[in-house]
Amino acid sequence: MIDVENLSKSFGATRAVDGISFQVQPGEIYGLLGPNGAGKTTTISCITGLLKPSAGRAVVDGVDVGSDPIRARRSLGVVPQETAIYDTLSARENLSYFASLHGISGEEKRRRVDEALDRVGLASNAKQASKKFSGGMKRRLNLAIGLVSRPKALLLDEPTVGIDPQARIHILDVVREVQKEGTAVLYTTHYLEEAETLCDRVGIMDHGRILAEGTISELRARVGEGTVLTLKGRFNPEQIQDAIRAESDARIVSLEENLAMVATSGEAAGASELLSRLLRADLDVAEIAMKEPSLENLFIKLTGRELRD
């Protein structure tokens, strides 16, 4: 349904998107997981035709966005990163307007608007001017506008940023619902947990590239069975290097003054062995964290840094 082929987009010297390819099938949620500046929004803008790719192309429902953007957009619902709503208009008026831009009118429009309001739980606030909405309600209206045309392909750009956990759960539930109806969903986020719990497949993105792609379990397998140990304290990198030199399957993920991340690729026993070795090395350690294999570890492994900065 959504086909991105060798897509690149440069802004001057900045390669915001650097030759990425992926596909999203109907009824699938594809997550683009990446930190700030990874190129997620730029990718979405190329799919909507708001930006013209420097190379490659995006195809939506068989229509090349570059050659016939208006036709491609008929199948697209978009939820932008910013809450792009008219705050002097009510929720209903907002939805009704964007529905008419999709050529929906009359009784059908009323039904679609009601449906979208219901979905996001704003039915009882439908007549209220949206400037009086809370942040979470605005986010939900932002989502509803993307849904009101019942798109075949839905693009969601960090739709849960800055809202409380309850509202987030609500939004994720709505996304799962539309997925069940057969919509192809492209979901960008920098929340690992969202990608892990929501997405069928995830592309890990940084500096405009997709570094790894696959289902959650495929990606987990790529991290290996190992565990990541994070140490904070007062030590210098050489001490860490000395301590783990003898440990054959220990690997340094990142190493800075007073902060070290070390991974084992072996079984759990390997991790405790590594830990005791490190403790014996007479380091001044204030904090130790052990993490099971997760996307975060994979992310660290791929990019050498944590997702949230």
Partner: peptide, 14 residues
């Protein structure tokens, strides 16, 4: 600035 313009520009209308 409010991004509603972009939202209209990516609707299926000229």
């Amino acid at each position: 600035a409010h991004r509603t313009l972009a939202r209209q520009m990516i609707a299926p209308v000229p």
